[in-house]
């Protein structure tokens, strides 16, 4: 996967991507949107895949759940991986189901030894089933569990070490969580080992007032804010250039606007690279 900026692929841009061939380094598709066994949608992704590198990014595997892994979901993911041959496959460090019921949202885990053992074993099982390494993404969060015994960055690093997964650092999610839980985003970045990070996500968020406190919510509905660009600069300095995704999947703008955000990420990377040289 090229160490440049790609954009999230959305159905309303399918035909424009095929007709205009926008200048972006790669596309990331939500795995679940291409689970269909046949039909136009998966055929369009076949054609886009012929022209661009691809990442498949899942939101529904519920890796941290104490329910058994969903065999059907995993089989669908495996079929998609075999069909589209993506350069990267990723999922979230979260859970969304128990007792067979799903919240279909990315709930954080308690950062305990038990959860660490559990989720690491699950990630290893998924990697075995797919026959490849996957990347695990840190999530935005709006709560912390009273029983958490370590900070998220320590948990995330340990998950990578235990399971052999790579890391997808979502810089907006770090920024959102740092605001919501009052920690230092740079401390998070500097605690993550340099070699573990294989992808960055950049996205926009919203501000919502809850009583006395203003929470940041990871809505993916706006442009990347200046503070997250600043965090991106810090991440580039620490980890070097890695594939970087512009994620904007709610109130989706014209394709050209997404491409412009990707260009901005590339320009920042080039600037820092030139400066370092």
């Amino acid at each position: 996967m090229p160490a440049h900026a790609g954009i999230g692929l959305r159905a309303q841009h399918h035909l424009e991507v095929l007709s205009e061939s926008p200048k972006v380094a790669w596309f990331e598709a939500h795995s679940e949107n291409y689970f269909a066994a046949g039909g136009a949608r998966v055929q369009i992704l076949d054609r886009i895949r012929e022209r661009y590198p691809l990442s498949l990014h899942g939101v529904g595997l519920s890796l941290g759940s104490t329910d058994p892994l969903d065999a059907e979901h995993l089989a669908n993911l495996r079929r998609a991986v075999e069909r589209f041959e993506p350069q990267l496959v990723s999922e979230h460090l979260s859970w969304s189901s128990v007792g067979g019921r799903f919240a279909n949202d990315l709930l954080p885990l308690p950062y305990t030894d038990e959860a660490l053992r559990h989720v690491s074993a699950r990630i290893a099982a998924v990697q075995d089933a797919l026959g490849r390494q996957i990347l695990i993404e840190n999530v935005s969060s709006y709560l912390q569990f009273a029983d958490s015994a370590m900070p998220e960055w320590e948990f995330l690093t340990a998950v990578a070490a235990h399971s052999g997964c790579g890391l997808l650092l979502d810089l907006n999610n770090i920024y959102v969580a740092a605001h919501n839980h009052r920690f230092d985003a740079l401390e998070y970045l500097h605690a993550i080992p340099r070699g573990a990070v294989q992808e960055f996500h950049l996205a926009g968020h919203s501000r919502v007032r809850h009583g006395a406190l203003e929470l940041l919510i990871d809505t993916h509905s706006t442009a990347v804010c200046e503070a997250v660009w600043e965090l991106y600069r810090a991440a580039l300095r620490r980890f070097g250039a890695v594939p970087t995704l512009i994620e904007w999947d709610s109130q989706i703008p014209p394709l050209a606007e997404l491409v412009a955000e990707a260009d901005k990420a590339n320009a920042l990377e080039a600037q820092l690279h030139a400066h370092a040289a």
Binding site: N104, L143, Q144, F145, H210, L215
Partner: peptide, 25 residues
């Protein structure tokens, strides 16, 4: 009781963010 209040009283408001997301999704 499972959630750190972290400035929000009650801490169930933090759970409500997820409840709201789940409904919307």
């Amino acid at each position: 009781e499972l959630i750190r209040a972290g400035g929000l009283t009650p801490s169930s408001e933090r759970l409500e963010v997820y409840a709201n997301n789940a409904r919307i999704n």
